[in-house]
């Protein structure tokens, strides 16, 4: 199994956290992984993106040309990265903030209102957690137990309330992804 993922959005949407989550999950599942953030000035303001590779084999180049899955949290990211998806690739887009349609028709598109769901669960900042849930509902990277371990670790130190909201957001997302 080799899964190449690009996660993109605007600065502050938790793009890097999502990406780190996936890489940490890969580690927990005993897989190889690389996490390569776009570390330029563009991180502040415009689109932030991160390349994550998860594989059962040693990963050579951390750079991704064609992606298996693309998670976009805002419209500019969809425009920028849609072309990078493989034919039949999985596209997860944040319907709440993206009012344009993908141009391609050879993709598996999941339009999910990540931001709206996050708001419903009690914290708009959890949109990234919803998206993560949706992606992991679709693609099995690790066992439920491993996912729980990483989720608990990533949320360590936060208030009980925030943890509860995130867990709920994750589950809501997961239900969409399945």
């Amino acid at each position: 199994m080799t899964e190449k993922i690009i996660i993109a959005g605007s600065g502050g949407q938790g793009i890097m956290v999502m990406s780190k989550f996936l890489s940490n999950l890969a580690v927990e599942a005993g897989r190889f992984t690389t996490y390569l953030p776009a570390y330029g000035a563009e991180v502040r303001g415009g689109t932030a993106h991160c390349m994550v590779i998860i594989s059962d084999e040693e990963i050579y180049s951390p750079l991704i040309d064609k992606v298996d899955a693309l998670i976009v949290m805002n419209a500019p990211s969809l425009v920028k990265f849609e072309g990078r998806l493989k034919k039949g690739g999985a596209l997860f887009l944040n319907k709440s903030l993206i009012n344009i349609k993908p141009k391609r028709n050879d993709l598996q598109v999941s339009e999910i209102p990540f931001t709206a769901i996050a708001q419903e669960t009690g914290n708009v900042k959890c949109a990234n957690t919803v998206a993560l849930g949706a992606y992991l509902g679709y693609k099995k990277i690790a066992s439920a137990k491993q996912t729980d371990v990483v989720l608990a670790k990533m949320l360590e130190g936060l208030s009980r309330e925030i943890i509860a909201v995130n867990k709920k957001a994750f589950e809501r997302g997961m239900a969409y992804g399945k």
Partner: peptide, 10 residues
């Protein structure tokens, strides 16, 4: 280099 420095790996 910048890529090796920023990249995370296990």
């Amino acid at each position: 280099d910048g890529m090796s420095g920023q990249m995370m790996e296990p």
